[in-house]
Design a protein around this nucleic acid. Structure first.
Length: 366
DNA sequence: AAATCGGGGAG
DNA sequence: CTCCCAGATTT
């Protein structure tokens, strides 16, 4: 039932009819988002700031609009330009990113800002190829910035567009094998005029109408063009591979508090929660449980299953052990290479959510 | 091609 | 509870 996306099928008039219908709908129903500008300002000729487009796109990678909005506001208030972000201490940026997840994005964000502010003289590259060379900028983000900030007719394909296009052309090939065909079809319907609005309109459509479950085909501006709709198979597409089961791991975090300060560590720069401040722990990972051996001798109050947390590829049940004295082994503490942080200011430590939850439990048991 | 890497919101 | 989100990078 798959409709091949060839020139003969998706010819110029058909592609134009789709983009025209979508843009007309977008002009009325576009979501009002912090990284967008008003239609009135747009008509007056205002352009989008590439810095804000880039920042929003990186934050939105695998992350919902609702989760990003507050972070975007705080980042742009605190660092209004790419030069300001480039000049910020790395620990400040990582702490500001805490809770948003996928922390490699934050590390790449800093590297990218410094590359743009330095080697590129403060200007983002304006071509897809140039953007693609930046840290943390892949196929999707390069195309999105090129289209939205620089008016280039790039094929912007995110998970929303994958779904919309797979349905429009009834592409029944399972993902990820269907991606080349989806990309070709997306390029075929991307207009030379307003490519940035088109990309955002496609994503709005996927987020609000052409949803994963229960798509609202009755109000869809593209319903008359949709092959999956005609075949009664819209909700079944795209076909996704089965997902693997998550292993269940256990670990222990250590709460060592002296004189109102708790010992934190900075995690290694790569891997899980890389570069982030954290409670010291027993080495749990996606591959293995933690060893549960306390880092210093003494009396510990253990709170079993203090925190349950689900990561992308495993679940973790984290025990929390609170140090209860009587004395502290100064040498062993030094070996932890930690930093003492005022407990009253723990919210400003920039702990990832797992450890923020653990800290909350610890404070309740103080 | 498959695995790694967070967190939260929707249903 | 399950599913998935404006993906990139490494293996």
């Amino acid at each position: 039932m798959s409709v091949e996306c060839r020139d003969a099928i998706v010819d110029e008039p058909v592609g134009s009819a789709i983009s025209s219908a979508l843009l007309a709908h977008y002009d009325v129903h576009a979501r009002d988002l912090p990284w967008r500008i008003s239609p009135a300002a747009r008509r007056a000729g205002a352009g989008l700031d590439p810095y804000r487009v880039w920042l929003s796109e990186v934050m939105l990678q695998q992350t919902t609009v609702a989760a990003v909005t507050g972070y975007f506001q705080r980042f742009t208030d605190r660092w209004p330009t790419v030069e300001a972000l480039a000049a910020a201490p790395e620990e400040d940026v990582l702490a500001a990113w805490a809770g948003l997840g996928y922390y490699a994005r934050a590390r790449n964000l800093i590297a990218c800002a410094r590359a743009v502010a330095g080697a590129h003289g403060g200007q983002f590259p304006q071509t897809e190829a140039g953007l693609l060379a930046l840290p943390g900028v892949g196929d999707y983000t390069a195309a999105a910035i090129a289209a939205i900030a620089f008016d280039e007719p790039a094929a912007v394909v995110d998970a929303n567009v994958e779904r919309v296009v797979a349905r429009l052309f009834a592409i029944a090939t399972p993902l990820p094998a269907a991606r080349p065909e989806i990309r070709t079809c997306t390029a075929r319907i991307t207009p030379r005029e307003r490519p940035g609005d088109f990309a955002q309109a496609m994503m709005d459509l996927g987020a609000t109408i052409c949803t994963v479950r229960n798509p609202s085909c009755l109000i869809c501006p593209l319903a008359s063009h949709c092959a999956a709709r005609a075949a009664g198979m819209a909700e079944a597409l795209p076909i996704k591979p089965p997902r693997k089961a998550k292993p269940q791991r256990t670990g222990t975090a250590w709460w060592i508090e002296l004189d109102g300060q708790v010992l934190l560590v900075q995690r290694p720069g790569k891997g899980m929660l890389g570069g982030m401040r954290a409670l010291p722990d027993d080495g749990w990972s996606a591959r293995a449980d933690g060893h549960a051996e306390p880092p210093v001798t003494g009396q510990w109050q253990v709170i079993e299953a203090a925190v349950g947390h689900v990561f992308t590829h495993f679940s973790l049940e984290l025990a929390l052990a609170l140090y209860r004295g009587p004395q502290i082994d100064k040498v062993a503490i030094e070996n932890l290479n930690g930093i003492w942080w005022p407990v009253e200011q723990i919210a400003e430590a920039g702990l990832p959510t797992l450890f923020a939850k653990a800290a909350t439990v610890a404070i309740q048991h103080r």
